[in-house]
C-alpha cells in the first residue's frame, strides 16, 4: 500500500505571531490532516490556528542557490538606517 500523502503543518501561536512551520504528517485528506495536526502538534496549547499544506504544493528555493539569492543583499549596507550619518542636533529622524 502507498503511504498517505504528506502534509506540512504550520501553527500560529497565541501571541499573534505569523504561522510557523512545525513539522509534517501523513493524512489521506485535508480534514484528516487538520485533525491529525491538532493531535500531533498542539497537545499543550501550542497554537490558536493551524494551516496544513500538501508538501507537493510547496515550492522552495534550493540550498545551492543560497549564494546567488542572498549574497547580493549582503553588501548593500546603505539599505540599513545605521548607514547614514545624522548630525547630533537633528531629532526625530
Amino acid at each position: 500500500m502507498k503511504d498517505w500523502p504528506l502534509w506540512e503543518v504550520f501553527i500560529r501561536s497565541r501571541h499573534g505571531l505569523a504561522h510557523k512551520h512545525v513539522g509534517s504528517l501523513h493524512a489521506s485528506d485535508a480534514a484528516l490532516a487538520l485533525a491529525n495536526a491538532r493531535d500531533v502538534y498542539t497537545r499543550r496549547g501550542e497554537g490558536v490556528s493551524i494551516w496544513v499544506v500538501r508538501s507537493t504544493d510547496i515550492i522552495a528555493s534550493a540550498p545551492g542557490d543560497k549564494a546567488i539569492l542572498f549574497d547580493p543583499s549582503e553588501d548593500k549596507v546603505y539599505r540599513h538606517p545605521t548607514f547614514y550619518e545624522v548630525p547630533d542636533e537633528i531629532d526625530n529622524l
Binding site: 508538501s55 528555493s61 534550493a62
Partner: peptide, 15 residues
Amino acid sequence: AGPSFMTGKTLMHTQ
C-alpha cells in the same frame, strides 16, 4: 556535476 540549480517544484521538508 553539481546539485540542481533551480529545480522548480521541490519539497520543503522531505526532499
